[in-house]
Design a protein around this nucleic acid. Structure first.
Length: 244
DNA sequence: TGCCATGTTAAACT
DNA sequence: GAGTTTAACATGGC
């Protein structure tokens, strides 16, 4: 569920509730749920893996972490921890096992919208600038940095590095400028491919490296290693992916 | 059945 | 205090 493209899918599915008034709200989220009833939803916004329900004077931030889920217009699913339910005169939204918060700060001051790889405001030059400032960081960690590539998760990381044929333990500063450009471009491009595949339920089928045992290019076994400071699972080919 | 995973935060350390 | 490591959270798929 949690990578950026999945949140974009949620945003599209939920759009019909924009401008609608909440009739009833409940759940075990640790926020003041009583203030929600009667509120009109001004907009839904997404920033990377974060999803925002915006009202006139405040907003709710939903983060699905690893196990979060949601359902629309359904009965509440049993045996799942219901964090927040929003009931409308026509339809409903249920959020399960996710983080629910009401941020103190204004979203536009809190978030760099140009860092969201799925956004129309995505700014690759800005990403490059941020990367230039951290030459010692490994590329596998850099791709997961939400301040640079908001929305990129572990799947996208693995697939991008395989696509651009770069070893995950390459230092950012050691990447040739062209490869750095490739990484920034593919972080966005793969996210959109992810979006289309996910919509068509063929995401897994299109994985080239993530969870794979052998290289689709040269057939040798892929390395599975928990790379970098983030120590997330990384699959890569020591033959096809160059360490600069 | 047990292990592991599309993630982040906060506490506990050095 | 900084930077780090560890624990916690919680569900479903293989």
């Amino acid at each position: 569920m949690p990578e950026g493209p999945s949140i974009v899918i949620l945003k599209e599915l939920i759009e019909k509730f924009e401008g609608k008034k909440i009739r009833e709200a409940f759940g075990n989220a640790k926020i003041d749920i009583s203030r929600l009833a009667g509120q009109k939803i001004i907009a839904f916004r997404s920033w990377g893996k974060q999803f925002f329900i915006c009202f006139k004077d405040f907003s709710i931030r939903i983060h699905f972490l690893l196990f979060g889920s949601y359902s629309l217009d359904e009965q509440i699913k049993p045996d799942r921890s219901l964090r927040l339910a929003l009931i409308f005169s026509k339809g409903s939204i249920y959020f399960y096992t996710c983080s629910v918060k009401i941020p103190e700060d204004d979203l536009d001051t809190m978030l760099d919208w140009k860092a969201d790889v799925m956004s129309d405001d995505w700014d690759p030059a800005r990403a490059r600038k941020k990367l230039k400032a951290m030459p010692d960081t490994l590329v596998c960690d850099a791709l997961l940095d939400q301040q640079i590539f908001s929305g990129v998760g572990n799947i996208i990381k693995n697939e991008v590095l395989f696509r651009i044929r770069v070893h995950p333990e390459t230092r950012v500063g050691d990447l040739p400028p062209r490869k750095l450009g490739d990484m920034i471009r593919e972080a966005r491009q793969y996210s959109f491919d992810f979006l289309e595949w996910k919509k068509n339920y063929v995401l897994k089928k299109n994985w080239l490296a993530h969870t794979k045992k052998t290289c689709v290019r040269c057939s040798i076994p892929l390395i599975k290693k928990y790379c970098g400071k983030t120590a997330r699972r990384t699959s890569f080919c020591t033959n096809c992916q160059v360490k600069y």
